[in-house]
Design a protein around this nucleic acid. Sequence first.
DNA 1: TATGAATGAGGGTTCATTCAT
DNA 2: GATGAATGAACCCTCATTCAT
Lengths: 190, 190, 190, 190
Amino acid sequence: MEETSKKIRLLSSAYKLFTTKGFNKTTIQDIVDAARVAKGTFYLYFEDKYKLQEELIINKSLEIFNEAIVELEKQNINKFDDQVIFIFDYVIDYLEKEPSILNFISKDLSLGLYHEKLINILEGKETKIYDLFIKGAKENNLKNPELTLFMIIEFVSSTIYSVLMKKIDINIKDYKKYVHEIIKDMLKIK
Amino acid sequence: MEETSKKIRLLSSAYKLFTTKGFNKTTIQDIVDAARVAKGTFYLYFEDKYKLQEELIINKSLEIFNEAIVELEKQNINKFDDQVIFIFDYVIDYLEKEPSILNFISKDLSLGLYHEKLINILEGKETKIYDLFIKGAKENNLKNPELTLFMIIEFVSSTIYSVLMKKIDINIKDYKKYVHEIIKDMLKIK
Amino acid sequence: MEETSKKIRLLSSAYKLFTTKGFNKTTIQDIVDAARVAKGTFYLYFEDKYKLQEELIINKSLEIFNEAIVELEKQNINKFDDQVIFIFDYVIDYLEKEPSILNFISKDLSLGLYHEKLINILEGKETKIYDLFIKGAKENNLKNPELTLFMIIEFVSSTIYSVLMKKIDINIKDYKKYVHEIIKDMLKIK
Amino acid sequence: MEETSKKIRLLSSAYKLFTTKGFNKTTIQDIVDAARVAKGTFYLYFEDKYKLQEELIINKSLEIFNEAIVELEKQNINKFDDQVIFIFDYVIDYLEKEPSILNFISKDLSLGLYHEKLINILEGKETKIYDLFIKGAKENNLKNPELTLFMIIEFVSSTIYSVLMKKIDINIKDYKKYVHEIIKDMLKIK
DNA sequence: TATGAATGAGGGTTCATTCAT
DNA sequence: GATGAATGAACCCTCATTCAT
């Protein structure tokens, strides 16, 4: 139990720093200092800064989507459209409450990388979100479920940053309406 | 005339290097070497590498969109939907032919930054694309033309990279169909 | 019996690595990994990498020279000159067959160190080679047997590397002729 | 004239440090500190520590051998044997007076490397020592002048260290006698 | 304008050694 | 005896930026 505490400390220190100063501006020295750990210890657990980031992205993304699924199951939502919308709404709300995550993801413009990872994670056959989506997609005769999921994720993740960071003048409510429309439209393309 | 040639040489050398090696991996030394100019000269024309990048992005983006407008005017396309689709098709085709530009924009994952700049540029009140869009938007009673333009640009620019780079399994033709649908849908949201 | 197996494993793993990668490029981690032993165990048996190297050099050198003596005794060689020549020929042949030893000794340019050790070892009063040499030297009225032995060893060991490693263009046969001449000449200096 | 002063300062600082602490124990930081120069400046003039060492070895070796040649020409020595002996005596005397050079060369056991370089340098077709040796060798019908030169250099350089460093109990005078004998013998091998 | 030598903070990484278990 | 996680000093090297010429 004590065993992994150093790794956990490194992860959470890095998370704090990445969300605060951004990925590039965070040095390994910063991370080990914050974790009160020697520099060499970093290399005991991670190959380099990028591997740590990857682990963080995977953890955090799965956390959010899994929470979303858990919440979804508590609801009584039957239509596939609405299920998908519920999940993305959940994610949007989550990011609204904890916008520092976006800093982590995007401050150093790593959106592209993040997307790639995200897609890989969500399409990991064993994730609940993927299962749910593919099952629903089949029942709705979607021609290419992976592609549709990809498009939705791309759309939301590419716009949410600008919206939450107030780079574009729109409130969350209106933004969500847009997203709902897009999701519905996308699920119609067969 | 000799006077400006150094700046131009720096810009075009940087463009070549950025599209080849990516932004982060290109050093100022690389740029000045390629431009056959002294290191100090760089700082005579640009504050730093990022300002040069910015200038490059603005130039290139305006170039593409303006070409698109010129082409559009040669056509006889009356419906607003179709005009917008024509322009984005033009851009997609352009990028398909010259995918090195994507390297420049995204190899170092600068998608986020690029979007921001792009939006600013296109919304620059004096650009033709903006004028055309706003005029058409009004005639079609779009509630929030800027937002719609933003959403379309975000959608296309966030997905085109993955499509062209074969990160996602879809051919250009099918991808365009998706984009057309999305654009039509977006222009319906009022 | 199980007790010493770890030390032996460390020695033979180190020998393999030193002859393969060279001394400097072999880390203690490499050695303990190859010996399937924990890092701390290394320090149970050796002060540091240099002490291990020393032990290895002593072992290996004694092994070769003792083999040479054993072989010599099987022959019927009476003249002192010829006895010495026989021994050095034996060593040269040995190294020719197993040139990896030279890698171990010289890859990291440790020739100097090696010589020092070698001289100490061979002059160790209890070694057969030393006894044989001193006895023969006296019978031949050599003024300074230690010095002569030293000179011969230095000459052979400083040239053999270049010869075997093909740094100098000479075949072993011709090289041996040279060595024979030098040995004879040295044994004449009184 | 001021132009190269930094490089010269780096070279002479490095020389002092190499002869004092040895090559391996001298860090680039040590060198630049001693030269009162910034770290980056080092890399302006040398690829790495090894290239600097090489430059130093070449400079110093040529310096000594050229001095020897100059001195030789002042003498009236006609026999080839005696010419060669004069030169090696000169080198031995030089090293006796300035034994720090041996530290530089051998403290980190780089004898092997040094020899290789030395041979290359001296066999560089344009060096006086090489010319003198080959010319004399031909006049004396030496079968393989390069090999003989190599053998002599190897012999002297491998023994001089131990002699000067008092690792072996012999005075310089006697040592020189040995060397003279060996040189004469080697020049007889045809 | 133009130069390019000089700067030096800062980067990531390695590895011999220690020590609590 | 044996372990291996933890240490942290030390390493080499990069490169944006400055400034005297």
